[in-house]
Amino acid sequence: MFAIPSALWPVVYFGVTIAVTAVIGWLASLAIWGLMRQSNPQVTAAAQRLGLIVVWLVGIVIAVQELGVAVDVLLVVIALLGAAAIVALRQPLENFGAKYFTDVYSPFKVGDTVRVGDLAGKVIEVNAMTTVLLTEDDLLVALPNARVLREPVVNLTPLAWKELTVPITLPGSIDLPAFESDMVKALAKIRTRLDRRYPPLFTTKSRSPQSSDLVLTLMVRRPEDREPVLAEANLRLTEVMERTRGSGSRGTVPSEPVEHPS
């Protein structure tokens, strides 16, 4: 019978640990998806990514240990570098992180007129660091995103309280027309909670063969409907995304540019 030389056992353990890490990562990702079905799909995807990073970090450290390498020093160096980076980049990181949360949870979007503290203006840009306002005096004001997240924001746009904007990232494997059509039908089921003058509206922000960034705009009938409608919309999103993977019809965008017939 074939016997593994004892010198190779650490390599085998290393390989097994990596394989087990991959399986645990996959299971963790599934568990997060299951637990966050009512959350925004972008938040779910971010949580899945974060979960995977944590699992892989732990898995790699354990695997490296199996090879007989002392990881104590490595861990200390990683921790110190991380702490130094956080201290040095505290403010940009704060703004960068805040941008993520304002995108998903702040009740305003580009085009709205808002007041933040003593500043008021039309939101013309939300970038990684700042939210840019155009004031009535034609002045540009850049507000750090962390401030926008920290301070009360008053949205002065008419009917802004009705509006729910749901950012959606669809992988390229999903047939966009079928997805949108099914979502329109699914959301019509909760139309009594929505303002009948505003059917669900999908706006394409960017499109590539790999993915599509869309925004779904919904208008609720009553202020207290915002939260349940958002949860229901997210639930429907997840369901419809699962259902519409890979269906298609003639007329969908080619995944790769094709030659023009001569």
């Binding site: 966009l176 059509s181 019509a188 999908f202 965008v253």
Partner: peptide, 26 residues
């Protein structure tokens, strides 16, 4: 605009729009 038929109307228009976007890319 709250009917299933409108969902199919959306399907047709989005299918067309996607073809147009693909052609624009080329």
């Amino acid at each position: 605009f709250w009917t299933d038929d409108y969902g199919e109307y959306t399907f047709y228009n989005r299918t067309t729009a996607e073809l147009i976007r693909g052609l624009d890319h080329q």
